[in-house]
């Protein structure tokens, strides 16, 4: 009994000494700044910065391979803190959100064939450019919703992807995942968007979608400077900083939407809070 306790006790002591020695001798030096950086990062490991997770981004920052502003999910706050730790000055990038530029769900847009197969937009797109007759419209099979690390994308019952302006951090993962390039990065300050991605001529668009842009230029006339029409498709000119609300009521196909007044039909997201100025000037 006594010898057993003694043997185990001595063995334990020896092992403790060996471990203690190894811990000092082979200690890996970690830059204290790296730990500090990890503290301030969002920790979602989303990869929006282009590096493998937040740890990879922290290393890249210290090696000078990454920009302080590369962490878009963190927002201005994180950027400022990172800049503080690294002792550099940060120029905050304008916050952006991703927007699905389409309202053509299964009720509004026509399919050119019946798709039976894998519930994945990339797989569907590889079969004759996808079932949707519109070459640019949302396929509605949810590849973006599955890839979003922030759960910011929902699929409506009628097969349309809708992105929450509150949850979206601007990581761009959905933008690169969408095979139809229907998701665009837009400045957060703008709530008015032309929700159409078809570059076809108006007559053709009318044949396959009720809510498609027919490039009639009425929005351009209603809100000068706020819209531009390129290649048979109207878009909000985000760089112009002009007020685009005037074009909304003028659009004959109702493809211009102000998200303040509500998300596309079928979405469960509640509209973003109305900015203060709007209340001041009724």
């Amino acid at each position: 009994m006594f010898s057993a306790i003694l043997t185990l006790g001595v063995m334990g002591l020896l092992a403790a000494l060996a471990l203690g020695f190894a811990a000092r001798k082979f200690a890996v030096e970690v830059d204290p700044r790296e730990l500090a950086l990890l503290e301030v990062m969002p920790g979602a490991n989303c990869g929006a910065c282009g590096f493998p997770g937040c740890g990879g981004f922290a290393k890249a920052l210290l090696e000078g391979k990454a920009m302080v502003t590369d962490c878009s999910p963190g927002g201005a706050d994180t950027v400022e803190r990172i800049a503080h730790i690294l002792g550099v000055e940060a120029i905050a990038a304008e916050p952006e959100v991703a927007v699905v530029l389409c309202q053509g769900d299964n009720l509004r847009a026509r399919d050119k064939y019946i798709y039976q197969g894998l519930e994945d937009c990339v797989a569907a797109q590889s079969l004759a450019q996808g079932p949707k007759a519109c070459p640019g419209g949302c396929l509605g099979l949810g590849t973006c919703a599955r890839i979003c690390p922030f759960d910011a994308i929902e699929m409506t019952a009628e097969g349309l992807a809708v992105i929450s302006r509150e949850k979206c951090t601007g990581c761009r993962k959905c933008v690169s995942a969408c095979p139809r390039k229907v998701i665009a990065m837009t400045p957060l300050r703008t709530t008015v968007h032309v929700l159409c991605n078809s570059h076809d001529k108006g007559a053709l668009v009318r044949k396959y979608c009720e809510l498609g842009c027919i490039a009639c230029h009425l929005c351009v006339k209603a809100s000068p400077g706020a819209y531009k029409v390129e290649n048979s498709l109207a878009q909000v000119d985000y760089d112009s900083h002009c007020d685009a609300t005037g074009g909304i009521g003028k659009c004959p196909t109702k493809c211009i939407r102000d998200f303040i007044l509500g998300y596309p039909e079928g979405s469960s997201f509640s509209p973003p809070v109305v900015p203060v100025q709007a209340e001041e000037n009724p």
Partner: peptide, 12 residues
């Protein structure tokens, strides 16, 4: 299940 399509998707 659309197995061939899934495998083809992986191959792609």
């Amino acid at each position: 299940l659309p197995l061939v399509q899934s495998v083809r998707h992986a191959k792609g």
